[in-house]
Write a protein that binds this DNA or RNA. Structure first.
Length: 890
DNA sequence: CGAGCCCGGGG
DNA sequence: GTGTACGGGCTCG
C-alpha cells in the first residue's frame, strides 16, 4: 500500500533490536484504491527502520594488508559495551572516500546497533587510536538530512497499517519512503494544519511567579483549522490592518465564534470561579484540577497538528506540568501516551509532547525572526504589534489576584485578555509558519529544533546538509578546551566612523548589500581555501593588512561555494518575486528571508568558537576586506565633495549639503563599477534629519570588545527623524527584574513622555523623582531589588548581595532552596554593596541609600534616552552625584 | 580588570 | 537525547 504523508514531528525508538524512526504527521490523499476506508487528511504515525552510523579514519596500520584487516574485523566484532543495560555493538562497516577539509581521504563508515551506542563505540575506538568523525550528529537530524524527508514536505510511503495499541493514532509501518518530485507536489492541495494556541494566567501577588504556591486561574485556548476558507479571508483582512484597532479585533473574534459552528476553529477560556459576565467562550469548572483535566480532554479531542503559544517552553507548559503533578493528573498527551515533558528548572527549557509539534513563537522570534524586527524587546505585546498590528489588551495584570480574591466582575476582562493572548500567539504562528517551513527545508532540521537553535547552529546544519551532496565529511565539534582556547583569540571587527555629536540635515545613507557574505564569496574565503599551496605566489592575492594570508583563486571551495549557491538562489527568487501571483508571493518571500538570514550568518559562523568548520583566519580576513572597502568608499565620497558624518561596518552616511540626491547616486554608480564579484553598494534612504550622540566611554569599550566576536556588533544606538517627523529611538536596553520598581517606573514613564514629545514634562518628572529619592521620601516598596538564587548557598564562589541576604534568611530559618527569589534593599554605608544589602523586613522607611539608587538605578535607566536626545547625562546628574541634589534639579 | 553570576520571555 | 544557548551588564575579588 502507498500513502502520501507530511511529516511534522520526529522521534526514534529501539524496538526488538531494531531502530525505528517515528514520523508523526498527516496523510493527505489516498494514493491507491485499497485504502478507501482511511479518512482524508488524517493524523497518523509512520515507522521506518534506520541504522545509526559514524566514521573512523582509516590509518596506515589498518589499511596495510589483509592481516590487519582481519585484525580489525576481529576487533570490531568483539566489541560489546554496556550502555544503560544494552550491549553496544558494531553491526557493519565499509570503506568510503570522503572529502575532509578540502582533501580526499579514505574512511570507514561504521554502523551501530542503536543511536546511543555511537558515542560509546567511538570512544572505544578512539582509545585504540582510531580518530572518529560524525559521532555526535543527532540521530533524527542525520535521518532527515540523509533522506531529504523534511518536515511539511510530502513523501510517499510504502507499507501497511498495523495495529499498535501503544499509540493514540493509526500506525503505518513503512518499508520504503521517498520524497515527491516538484511535479508531484504541485498536484497536491496545500496541507491543512490544525493549530491550537495556549495561554495560562496564574495567581501572582506582587509579580511573584511561584509554581508551588500560586494556582493557574485560567487557561485560554485558540484553535484554527487552516482547511477553512473563512479563516483565509480573515487573514487577508488582518494583513491590511496596519495599526492597533480594537474594532477589527472584535470583528475577528466574532468571525471565529461563527466559525465555531461549522468547523474546528474555536476560542475558549476555562476557569474555576463564578463571577458576573456575558462571555460566550467561557467554561467554568469546579477547581484547578478539574480545569487541567478539561484542558487535557480538549487537547485530545481537538487533535491539533501543532501546539503553539508565547514562551510556552518556559512558562505555560512547565507550569501546567507542575500543577498537574501536584494534583496527580497524568498529562499523557503524547501520541504514545507519554506525558508532557516540560520543566522550568532544567538547564534547557523546552516543552515536548511526543508526536505533537510544539512551536514556541517566542523562541522563534527571539532566536531567528527577531533579526527582521525593529523592536528591541521580544514581549508578546511588542512583537504582535509589529507583526500583526495588534497589541495585547490593556489590563493591569498585577491586579488579577485581587480580582480573583474578590470574585470581581473584572475577571471577565482578564478572561478576554487571556483568550486574546492565545489568539495573538496563534496568529503569530499562522503568519510565521511559512518562514518556519522554509527554514526547516533549507537547514534540513525538524521544525522543533530549527526554531530553538542559534544562528550558528542553523548555518552548521545547512553546511551539514550540503556536505552530503558534496561527499564532504564534517569536522568534529571542538572540545570545551578547544572552545576556550578559540575564545582567547580575537581580531579587529568592522570599521566604525565616530560621529561628531550634533544635529544633521539631509543624510543619504548607502550600504553594501550583504557585505560579509559577498566578500566571502567574491574572495573564496573558507577553511578549505586558506593558504592553498597552489596560490602561494600569486600577486595581489593577499588579504588587506595581512600579507601572510591568502585564499585559493583557482578553485571554488566547499564553504564559500555553498554560500554562493545560497545567495544565487536568493537572487533568482528576488527576480521571480517580481512576476509571481500574490498567493505564491508569501511563500517565496519567506524563502528569500530564510536564505538571507542564513547567508548573513555565515561570517559569524566562521568566527564562532563552537563551529565544526571554524575559520579564525577566514573571519579575520572578511572584516579586513570589509574595512578596506568601506574606507575606500568613504574616501571616494569625500573626493566627490560629500561630507561623511557616520559609517559603521557596511554603511556610509553622506551629508548632501548643497548637492542633489542624484549626485550622490552618481557617486554610488562610480563605486559599483570597481567592485569585484557580487559586491554592490546600495542606496538605503534619505533622512531629512538625524541626531548623532557620542558613545559613552564604557559603551565604546564594550562595543569594540563585542565587535571582535560578533558579525555586526550590537544593535546601534541612534535617533532618526523620519519623513513624518517622528523621532525613532533605538538601542537602549530594557529594564530587568533585578532592577527596583523605582527604576522600572521611571524608565517607562520617562520614555513615554519623551516619545509623546513632552520633553519638558519628562525632565520635570525626572527632577521630581530625584528630589523625592534624595529626601528619603520614596516608599521602600519601590526600592526592592530581586535576584534569584540558582544553587545551594554554600556553592557560591562569588558572594554577591543576594547571597549575603540569602544567608541571613537561612539563619532565621527561612528555607532558601535554589529558585528562591531573594528580595533586598541597599542601605547607607561605605562598604561593598553586599554589606549594605538588607532583608526587606529589616529596612525602615527612608533608610535606603539614595546615592546608590541614583547612580545604579535611576541614571542607568534614563541615561541612554537622555543621550539620544542630545543631553549629556554627566552634565545633568554630576552635581547630584557628588553633593546630593544637583543644581539642575533645584 | 578578569571571573562569576544573572537576565531574557511568562504573571 | 549520537544533547545542554548566548551575549550583555553588574559586582566581587
Amino acid at each position: 500500500m502507498k500513502i502520501i504523508f507530511y511529516p511534522l514531528d520526529y522521534q526514534y525508538k529501539v524496538k526488538d533490536e531494531q531502530v525505528l524512526i517515528y514520523l508523526y504527521g498527516k496523510t493527505q490523499e489516498i494514493a491507491s484504491q485499497e485504502q478507501k476506508n482511511t479518512p482524508q487528511s488524517q493524523k497518523i504515525v509512520i515507522t521506518f527502520p534506520y541504522q545509526p552510523y559514524f566514521y573512523a579514519k582509516l590509518n596506515n596500520s589498518i589499511d596495510k594488508g589483509d592481516s590487519n584487516r582481519k585484525n580489525i574485523a576481529d576487533y570490531f566484532q568483539k566489541i560489546n559495551i554496556d550502555v544503560h543495560g544494552r550491549p553496544a555493538k558494531i553491526t557493519a562497516w565499509k570503506e568510503v572516500e570522503k572529502e575532509f577539509l578540502g582533501k580526499k581521504e579514505k574512511f570507514l563508515q561504521i554502523y551501530a546497533n542503536f543511536p546511543q551506542a555511537v558515542p560509546a563505540l567511538s570512544q572505544e575506538l578512539e582509545s585504540k587510536g582510531l580518530k572518529c568523525y560524525e559521532k555526535d550528529i543527532v540521530f533524527i537530524q542525520r535521518f532527515i538530512r540523509d533522506t531529504g524527508l523534511w518536515p511539511f514536505s510530502p513523501l510517499e510511503a510504502e507499507g501497511e497499517f498495523i495495529s499498535d495499541l501503544s499509540l493514540r493514532l493509526p500506525l503505518f509501518s513503512a518499508h520504503a519512503l521517498r520524497t515527491l518530485n516538484e511535479e508531484e507536489k504541485l498536484k497536491l492541495p496545500p496541507l491543512p494544519l490544525r493549530i491550537i494556541s495556549l495561554d495560562i494566567e496564574t495567581y501572582a501577588r506582587e509579580r511573584a511567579i511561584d509554581f508551588e504556591k500560586n494556582p493557574i486561574l485560567m487557561i485560554g485556548l485558540s484553535g484554527v483549522d487552516e482547511n477553512n476558507k473563512e479563516n483565509d479571508n480573515n487573514e487577508q483582512k488582518n494583513e491590511n490592518d496596519g495599526k492597533n484597532n480594537d474594532e477589527k479585533d472584535n470583528d475577528k473574534n466574532n468571525n471565529n465564534k461563527d466559525n465555531d459552528k461549522n468547523n474546528n476553529s474555536f476560542q475558549k477560556v476555562i476557569t474555576w470561579k463564578t463571577f458576573p459576565n456575558n462571555l460566550e467562550n467561557l467554561e467554568v469548572v469546579e477547581n484547578e484540577a478539574e480545569m487541567i483535566k478539561r484542558f487535557k480532554e480538549i487537547m485530545l479531542s481537538y487533535q491539533p497538528d501543532i501546539i503553539t503559544g508565547y514562551f510556552t517552553d518556559g512558562f505555560d507548559l512547565p507550569y501546567l506540568k507542575f500543577r498537574a503533578d501536584k494534583f496527580n493528573i497524568k498529562l499523557d498527551l503524547g501520541t504514545d501516551f507519554s506525558e508532557l515533558d516540560a520543566s522550568a528548572n532544567r538547564e534547557r527549557k523546552e516543552g515536548r509532547i511526543a508526536g505533537l509539534l510544539h512551536l514556541d513563537m517566542f523562541k522563534f522570534v527571539r532566536n531567528i525572526f527577531g533579526r527582521n524586527l525593529k523592536t528591541d524587546g521580544f514581549s508578546l505585546d511588542e512583537v504582535s504589534f509589529e507583526l500583526l498590528g495588534h497589541r495585547k489588551h490593556e489590563v493591569d495584570i498585577s491586579e488579577l489576584y485581587s480580582a480573583w480574591d474578590s470574585n470581581s466582575e473584572k475577571l471577565a476582562d482578564y478572561c478576554r485578555y487571556n483568550i486574546h493572548d492565545a489568539y495573538l500567539a496563534l496568529q503569530l504562528c499562522h503568519k510565521l509558519l511559512p518562514d518556519i517551513r522554509e527554514l526547516t527545508e533549507i537547514t534540513g532540521l525538524p521544525a522543533f529544533d530549527a526554531i530553538r537553535m542559534s544562528f550558528s547552529r542553523l548555518v552548521e546544519s545547512y553546511i551539514l546538509k550540503r556536505a552530503i551532496e558534496y561527499n564532504v565529511l564534517a569536522p568534529n565539534r571542538p572540545s570545551s578546551y578547544e572552545i576556550n582556547s578559540r575564545r582567547e583569540e580575537s581580531y579587529e571587527g568592522g570599521f566604525v566612523f565616530e560621529p561628531q555629536p550634533g544635529l544633521y540635515e539631509n543624510i543619504a545613507v548607502f550600504d553594501f548589500r550583504s557585505l560579509y557574505p559577498s566578500i566571502i564569496v567574491s574572495h573564496n574565503i573558507g577553511p578549505e581555501s586558506f593558504r592553498c599551496p597552489c596560490c602561494k605566489n600569486i600577486k595581489n592575492n593577499a588579504v588587506p593588512e595581512r600579507d601572510d594570508y591568502w585564499f585559493c583563486q583557482k578553485e571554488k571551495k566547499f564553504t564559500p561555494l555553498i554560500l554562493e549557491e545560497l545567495i544565487r538562489k536568493r537572487m533568482e527568487l528576488r527576480k521571480a518575486l517580481k512576476i509571481v501571483q500574490p498567493k505564491e508571493k508569501a511563500l517565496l518571500e519567506a524563502r528569500s528571508q530564510a536564505l538571507k538570514l542564513l547567508g548573513n550568518s555565515f561570517y559569524g559562523y566562521l568566527g564562532f568558537s563552537g563551529a565544526r568548520w571554524y575559520g579564525f583566519e577566514c573571519a579575520r580576513s572578511t572584516t579586513a576586506y570589509a574595512r578596506n572597502y568601506i574606507k575606500a568608499t568613504i574616501q571616494k565620497a569625500e573626493d566627490a565633495g560629500f561630507k561623511v558624518c557616520y559609517s559603521d561596518t557596511d554603511s556610509c552616511f553622506l551629508l548632501l549639503g548643497d548637492k542633489k540626491l542624484d549626485e550622490a547616486l552618481e557617486f554610488m554608480k562610480a563605486v559599483n563599477k570597481n567592485l569585484p564579484g557580487m559586491m554592490e553598494l546600495e542606496f538605503e534612504s534619505l533622512y531629512p534629519k538625524g541626531i548623532f550622540v557620542a558613545l559613552k566611554n564604557t559603551e565604546k569599550k564594550q562595543s569594540e570588545k563585542s565587535n571582535k566576536r560578533e558579525e555586526k556588533g550590537a544593535k546601534k544606538k541612534y535617533a532618526l527623524l523620519d519623513t513624518k517627523g517622528q523621532l525613532k529611538i533605538r538601542g537602549f536596553e530594557t529594564v530587568r527584574r533585578n532592577w527596583s520598581p523605582l527604576a522600572k517606573e521611571l524608565q517607562e514613564k520617562f520614555l513615554n513622555l519623551i516619545l509623546n514629545g513632552k520633553k519638558e514634562e519628562a525632565l520635570e518628572y525626572l527632577r521630581q523623582t530625584v528630589s523625592l529619592l534624595k529626601e528619603g521620601r520614596m516608599p521602600k516598596k519601590k526600592m526592592i531589588i530581586k535576584t534569584m538564587i540558582t544553587r545551594e548557598i554554600d556553592e557560591y564562589a562569588s558572594i554577591g548581595p543576594q547571597v549575603v541576604v540569602a544567608r541571613k534568611m537561612l539563619e532565621r530559618g527561612y528555607p532558601v532552596p535554589p529558585g528562591t527569589m531573594i528580595e533586598y534593599i541597599i542601605v547607607r554605608g561605605s562598604n561593598l554593596v553586599r554589606d549594605r544589602a538588607k532583608l526587606v523586613e529589616d529596612v525602615k522607611e527612608g533608610e535606603y541609600d539614595a546615592e546608590y539608587y541614583l547612580n545604579n538605578q535611576l541614571i542607568p535607566a534614563v541615561s541612554s534616552i537622555l543621550a539620544v536626545l542630545g543631553y549629556n547625562e554627566d552634565e545633568i546628574f554630576s552635581d547630584s552625584k557628588q553633593t546630593g541634589l544637583g543644581s539642575y534639579f533645584k
